[in-house]
Each structure stands twice: as structure tokens, then as C-alpha cells.
Write a protein that binds this DNA or RNA. Structure first.
Length: 383
DNA sequence: ATTCTTGGAAGAATGCACTT
DNA sequence: AAGTGCATTCTTCCAAGAAT
């Protein structure tokens, strides 16, 4: 018998220790290949896969991955089908409030129940044996309703994020097609945009792979080494997993560095991720799978937005090699023609779009905080 | 009901020929 | 020897299907 750390005040009774098998029946998903199309969703471990004309179950159910993604349970309340790598469940609603069970399932460490060597897998026994403490149905309902409201808040924030992103996309389109023009501070029109080539306004340089025989190290010894997977779509890099050049190899690639005044563009693997690094990474080495624009003769932020507004994606479409894997050649970036406004208009546009990006970043932070909060609640509101 | 095997897609690292 | 372009290889990750 036990109680959670965090609890609504009006309840005091001890929670009852149970196991999952006491409150639900785990059912296997089934092959959906032979079913005809319809309007019943077929859930896979990654989400809805298709719609069919038959259903396995109708009503409230928790879906738990059997193979692959096993740590993201889902709650459904409809007619549905699940593929055979996804369990569904019949919930004993006289014992447990389904949404309470779902919130509980969200904080179970499913991966620790994985016994497979390769792809993570769960079996019915390990699910059935997961322990679960439950209060009265009234308290369950209260907890579940509260946590569901938090989920709703998280959904709202991610919708806001989505809308802002759409707005930014639309504004970029209008600004760079000159459908919308800013006026100068004194109210006069800005001058016409001029066609330039990238190599007129920047030097394009490649990155450099590590010398043969060396590999990146985790410790902060040599320079940071920025790879394509460190780059994100928010014009920056993710700091968490940055690896470092081993000290013995530092001299060999010493010249291939990047600063916060430059722009990086990925040219292999995931093409066309563009952005800049923050000054704390000045002097970091750049992977061979990215190029840098350096010695810029224009507004750096403006150029990032401009290239990201479509120039890069159409360049990739038209010139990326069609081999096994696309690659963006350095000279195609050098020779890319772009329409450039005067510096003062560049600054206006850059500031405007940065302001939207700041709002997006703020929303992203709030979303992140809300998710953290939810995580904490899940840790403390269950036994 | 459970475990093993296979397919295949995506992405990053490596090999290699050619140029500077 | 360094730099560049591109094909190839290697890894990783998931899901589907076959075999127990």
C-alpha cells in the first residue's frame, strides 16, 4: 500500500497495488494487408498507416508497441485496427479509468522491459507484470482529467508553433518575391533588387574530413567538429552531441574552421541545411559534408533567410547529383544567382524575420518547458 | 504467442579518380 | 599534397513476415 508524492489534497486513502493484467487484457494486432479500404484507422507503431473497412476493437484502448517504437503508448477511443507489431488492450473500466491508465503508461520505462537484442520488443508477459498503484475511480478521474488538460496545453503550444511557422513561410515567400516591400525610414522606396552571384558576395569553401585513422572524441580536447547531424533547421547547431577533433589531428585540419560570421550549408547526406554557429564555437572544424560561405559582403542573417527561401531547394532539385545519394557541388553554390536588395533593405527584412523566429523560439521553449513539467508530474503523481 | 529473419530506407563515412 | 566531386560502403533504424 502506498501513495504518490504529489496528490490532490482532498484524497487521503492509500493506493492499491495491482498489475497491468488486473486492469486490462493485452491483445495482439493483426495483419491488415487483406482488408479493403474504408474509414477505420490502422495504427502502426509510428501512427496511422492507412484506413480500412473493418475494426478490431471499438472504444477506449491503450496501444503499446510490440516491436520497434515500444516506448510511446497511445490512447484511442474509436473503432480501430492495429498492425501486428502493435498491441491494443481491452480495459476493465470498472477498475480503472482508461485515461488514468494511459497517463500511467506514459511514465512506464518500457525500454527497460526490452529483452530483444536487436529491435526493441515487448511481450504480453512483461506488459502484464508492470506494476500499477491505483486510487479510487474518483481520484483516478481527477488525476487523468488534470493531466489530459496539461496535454491539451502542450497541443495548443505546438499548434501555435505550427501557425507561426506557417506565417513565417508565407512572409518569406512574399518578401523574397517582392510582393511585399519595406519602405525606408524616411518613407522613400528602396532601390531595385540586383542580380548577383554568390561568389560575388562571399567566398565558398568546403569543410574537411578527419585524416585517415583518426576518429572524433567525446572529450573537450581539440576543436569542436561540426557534422551535418549537429545542424538543425533553426539556422543553428545542436550543442549536445558535438564531438571533438583528437589533439593529434588538430594540425592536419586546422585551416578548415568556421566562425560566427560565416554561414554553413550541408552538401551531402541531408542537403541544404543552412545556418550559422554561435561565437562560442568560433574556430570549430567543419565536416567535409558541408560548405561554408565566408567573407560575406552582405547582411549575414539576410543571406541565410534568402537562401533558405527557395534558392537552395531549387538548386538542390536542379543540380544535386542523381547518384546513389545526392550531393551538392561547391561550384554550383558559387555560381548560384540571387536577387539582392540594398544593405538597408536587407537589414529590415532580416530584422523582421528574426523577430518571427524569436517568437517561434519562445514558443518552442514554452513547449519544451510544458513538456518538462508534464514529465515531472508524471514522475510524482504516480506511485 | 513469441522469436527469428529479412527488406529496405535514410543518412553519414569512406574510397577513389581527377584537378589544382 | 591538398582539394573536389561523386560513387560506394557502412550504420542505424523500423517494420513486415516467416518460423517456431
Amino acid at each position: 500500500m502506498s501513495t504518490p508524492k504529489l496528490r490532490f489534497k482532498e484524497f487521503s486513502r492509500e493506493w492499491e497495488n495491482k498489475k497491468y493484467q488486473d486492469v486490462l487484457n493485452i491483445k495482439y494486432g493483426k495483419d491488415h494487408k487483406n482488408l479493403n479500404s474504408g474509414d477505420i484507422p490502422v495504427y502502426g507503431t509510428g501512427g496511422i498507416m492507412r484506413h480500412v473497412n473493418k475494426y478490431l476493437y471499438d472504444g477506449e484502448s491503450i496501444l503499446i508497441g510490440r516491436k520497434g517504437t515500444i516506448d510511446q503508448p497511445k490512447y484511442v477511443n474509436e473503432k480501430f485496427w492495429t498492425v501486428d507489431t502493435l498491441f491494443y488492450s481491452e480495459i476493465h473500466i470498472d477498475k480503472v479509468f482508461p485515461k488514468f491508465l494511459y497517463q500511467h503508461a506514459l511514465q512506464v520505462n518500457w525500454l527497460s522491459l526490452n529483452e530483444a537484442t536487436g529491435v526493441p520488443s515487448l511481450n504480453t508477459t512483461s506488459i502484464n507484470n508492470v506494476s500499477l498503484s491505483i486510487p479510487t475511480l474518483t481520484e483516478q478521474t481527477k488525476i487523468a482529467t488534470f493531466l489530459t488538460a496539461v496535454d491539451e496545453k502542450i497541443n495548443q503550444l505546438s499548434q501555435k508553433q505550427e501557425l507561426l511557422t506557417q506565417y513565417k513561410k508565407g512572409m518569406m515567400q512574399k518578401l523574397f518575391s517582392q510582393q511585399i516591400r519595406f519602405k525606408a525610414d524616411d518613407g522613400s522606396e528602396f532601390g531595385a533588387w540586383v542580380e548577383r552571384t554568390i561568389k560575388d558576395i562571399a567566398d565558398v569553401k568546403g569543410g574537411k574530413r578527419l585524416p585517415k585513422g583518426y576518429s572524433l572524441v567525446a572529450q573537450n580536447t581539440g576543436h569542436p567538429y561540426i557534422t551535418v547531424s549537429d545542424m538543425n533547421r533553426s539556422y543553428g547547431i545542436d550543442h549536445e552531441n558535438i564531438k571533438y577533433v583528437p589533439i593529434e589531428a588538430v594540425d592536419a585540419i586546422n585551416r578548415y574552421t568556421i566562425t560566427d560570421k560565416d554561414i554553413f550549408i550541408s552538401v551531402a547526406g541531408t542537403l541544404g541545411i543552412i545556418g550559422k554557429i554561435s561565437s562560442e564555437f568560433n574556430g570549430a572544424n567543419l565536416t567535409e559534408n558541408a560548405d561554408k560561405l565566408t567573407n560575406l559582403k552582405c547582411n549575414q542573417i539576410f543571406l541565410i533567410y534568402l537562401l533558405d527561401s527557395g534558392y537552395l531547394s531549387s538548386l538542390i532539385e536542379s543540380t544535386a547529383t542523381t547518384s546513389a545519394q545526392p550531393k551538392l557541388a561547391l561550384y554550383t553554390i558559387q555560381d548560384l544567382k540571387i536577387l539582392m536588395p540594398l544593405l538597408s533593405e536587407q537589414t529590415k527584412i532580416a530584422n523582421f524575420l528574426s523577430a518571427i523566429d524569436q517568437k517561434i523560439d519562445l514558443t518552442t521553449q514554452q513547449l519544451e518547458q510544458a513538456k518538462q513539467w508534464k514529465k515531472g508530474l508524471l514522475q510524482h503523481m504516480f506511485v
